[in-house]
Design a protein around this nucleic acid. Structure first.
Lengths: 90, 90, 90, 90
DNA sequence: GATGCGCTTTAAATGC
DNA sequence: GCATTTAAAGCGCATC
């Protein structure tokens, strides 16, 4: 079960295990939050809201935020190009 | 623009907004954890581990855990049956 | 190798094979189109366009189209609700 | 609104638009084929096949095809080596 | 119980 | 060649 070299041989295994466990802990937290979200939808449903509508509102707001971010990136990209052109003309 | 009934008319809207914001906060937490997980994979990769392998180990352990849970449920089911039989014989 | 019942036993297999082949043909077409898209990006790049910008423009237009569709669905959903309320009051 | 330089200033824009539209057309075709594939799966499901199984068969065949291709490439590589050796000995 | 939809995860492409 | 970003596949849930 143990012998010369045993410890060093398992260092990789130990580190692997450590990574796996850290990931598992985080995955668990993630699952827990996902459940919390479900509960919020359930609660809303319980007082008469249509989950579908809430879902749409949430996704709509998300899309708007993404679009804004996307536009900023595009603008930045254009500016980079313009600067490159200016550099070329100097 | 405002008048009798205005506040009451918006109660639904306020509650909707409240739900939406709670969900958004939770979604944000979830995203954050997802990023943390990615970082762990990156860190592992950084010291020479193949992310793909870690992924396999994690999913394998998850499957084993689920299998065990299912078997426990099955066992529990059997025990319930046995108890029912015992009750019938009393 | 053959005998009574052989043909009927393989009917399911034949149909499965048929489905698989149809899917494979379609997948092939899909891959081909994907390659065509790549070529367009390459061509654009070849005459000095930044593929990244084109990509952004394409995705931006797509998002706008989706947003419009999404809003229509939301509106429709609201209308459904209003109709339900009206039905309740009749 | 228009004047000297106007047309030339927009040539880049026109070409960009042209590329974007070509890509969008191709993307649309691709989406259409993806839908066709889904329909085949639905049809198969409709006569009692499990889509999951078909999916497995398709991916298995794909992997086999790739494997064969890789082996061919390897063989080709060997042949190249052999030819090189022969050339060296002449 | 079947069907469609959304989300998650995995695979691939591109640029640095 | 690696790391980011983007597309596709697969899965699970909610609905009807």
């Amino acid at each position: 079960m143990s012998g010369i070299g045993h410890n060093s041989e398992n260092i990789a295994g130990d580190r692997l295990k450590s990574f796996v466990e850290r990931i598992e802990r985080l995955e668990e937290e993630k699952s827990h939050i996902a459940e919390d979200i479900k509960e919020v939808y359930s609660e809303a449903k319980g007082i008469g809201f249509d989950a579908k509508i809430i879902r749409k509102v949430v996704s709509r707001r998300k899309m708007e935020a993404e679009k804004r971010r996307e536009e900023d990136e595009l603008l930045e990209l254009y500016e980079t190009k313009v600067n490159s052109l200016q550099d070329m003309m100097e």
